[in-house]
Computed example of a mutant assay.
Amino acid sequence: MTNERLPDWVPANGLQLRLAGIHFDAIRVRGVRGEAVLHHLADATDGRPGPVVREVAGGRWTYFLIPPGSSKEHTWPPGARCFGPCARDQYVGIPAAHGNTYPLSWRCGPPVEGEFVDPGLLHAVVTAQLCRPPEE
């Protein structure tokens, strides 16, 4: 782990639900499409796309954490669900930086204070990925 400070909304251990729209907004994409979005974001950002939470069970969701309030700046395509000011009382599971956090994990390492996925870049990549057939 680096000397950079974790955001206060990252739990010390395990995982916790956090109300979206307060510390971050989140865009959720399912399965292989979420992984494809992450792959393209990582390529565009030299491997540091920002905080991304992955669920390894169930729907295998990928949650892209963007600055609070920024989700309403874009119209998200079907297949990308917005968690933030565009909806009420939505929670996102947030894993600790280390330890047992199953079924959630940080896909590109835990975030540092003030770090988020770029909402404009995310919107462009999500729109491109969700408007074409999935690669299998």
Rank of each mutant, 00 (worst) to 15 (best):
Leu6Trp: 02
Gln16Lys: 10
Ala124Met: 12
Asn3Gly: 12
Gly21Asn: 10
Pro134Gly: 14
Asp8Arg: 10
Gly114Cys: 05
Val126Met: 01
His74Asp: 05
Gly14Leu: 02
Pro51Phe: 00
Tyr91Lys: 07
Glu73Cys: 01
Arg132Tyr: 01
Asp43Lys: 08
Glu55Leu: 11
Arg88Met: 06
Gly31Asn: 12
Ala96Arg: 04
Thr101Phe: 09
Gly84Asp: 14
Leu65Asn: 06
Pro49Ala: 07
Pro78Gln: 13
Glu115Ile: 03
Leu15Tyr: 14
Ala57Asp: 14
Gly84Met: 11
Val126His: 03
Val29Asn: 08
Arg88Asp: 13
Arg30Gly: 04
Tyr102Trp: 10
Ile94Ala: 03
Ala20Tyr: 09
Ser71Glu: 15
Gly50Ser: 07
Leu122Ile: 09
Trp9Lys: 08
Cys108Trp: 02
Ala44Ile: 06
Met1Tyr: 10
Trp76Cys: 05
Pro85Tyr: 07
Glu135Met: 10
Leu65Arg: 07
Val37Cys: 03
Phe64Asp: 04
Arg33Met: 13
Thr75Ala: 14
Pro51Thr: 08
Arg28His: 04
Val10Trp: 01
Ser70Phe: 00
Leu122His: 07
Cys108His: 15
His39Arg: 15
Pro134Asp: 11
Gly120Val: 01
Leu19Tyr: 02
Cys82Ala: 14
Ser71Met: 03
Phe64Trp: 05
Ile27His: 11
His40Cys: 05
Leu122Tyr: 04
Leu130Asn: 11
Gly120Thr: 14
Glu135Arg: 14
Glu113Asp: 15
Asn3Ser: 13
Gly99Glu: 02
Glu115Leu: 08
Pro49Phe: 03
Pro95Ala: 09
Arg107Trp: 06
Asn100Ala: 12
Ile22Glu: 15
His40Gly: 00
His74Thr: 02
Pro51Asn: 09
Pro78Trp: 08
Cys82Lys: 08
Arg54Lys: 12
Ser105Thr: 15
Pro103Tyr: 06
Pro77Gly: 11
Arg88Ile: 02
Val32Cys: 03
His40Gln: 15
Ile27Lys: 02
Gly47Glu: 10
Ser70Ala: 13
Ala57Gln: 14
Val126Pro: 06
His98Cys: 07
His39Ile: 00
Asp8Leu: 02
Leu130Glu: 07
Pro78Ile: 03
Arg132Ala: 12
Glu136Cys: 02
Thr75Tyr: 00
Ile27Asn: 10
Trp106Ala: 11
Gly50Asn: 06
Leu104Arg: 11
Asn3Val: 12
Thr101Met: 09
Glu113Pro: 00
Gly31Lys: 10
Leu104Ser: 08
Val10Cys: 01
